[in-house]
């Protein structure tokens, strides 16, 4: 359900970026989005929510391309890098120490693809 809020935030981020680059009004073909493994975002739900958020804007009908960012944890005790697994969760697989999450919560717009070649 919170994908509706995320879709609205995504629309606003893209619109602001187009404004900043004076690209507003260009036909956007696709948006590439990075979603962290632990971001709790379901791409399919986001796509569905975005289709409503973007209705009657220049982003209506544009395609979403998703890439995944792997979750990595750094052990506070032994400083070793861990990948996330559901057995150990936020405990270090090597020493059992507590870990800080250093990636895996991403929700970023990486790039846009625009139709035509009028802009350099």
């Amino acid at each position: 359900m919170h994908e509706a809020s995320l879709a609205r935030a995504m629309l606003s981020t893209v619109m602001d970026s187009l404004d900043e680059r004076s690209l507003r009004g260009q036909d956007v073909v696709s948006i590439t989005v990075r979603i962290g493994e632990l971001a709790q975002i379901d791409p399919e739900s986001l796509e569905f929510a975005f289709s409503f958020a973007a209705a009657e804007t220049e982003l209506e009908g544009c395609k979403l391309i998703f890439t995944t960012a792997v979750a990595e944890l750094l052990c506070v005790s032994c400083q070793r890098l861990n990948t996330y697994d559901i057995e150990h969760l936020y405990r270090c697989v090597y020493c059992g120490g507590p870990c800080d999450l250093i990636s895996g919560k991403e929700f970023d717009v990486i790039s846009l693809e625009l139709a035509g070649s009028t802009v350099t």
Binding site: L6, T13, D108, V109, I110, S111, E113, G116
Partner: peptide, 16 residues
Amino acid sequence: MSISVNLEAQILDKAN
């Protein structure tokens, strides 16, 4: 022909 624009923007920046 299409062109690609790099953004690298965090989507929840504004909310945050």
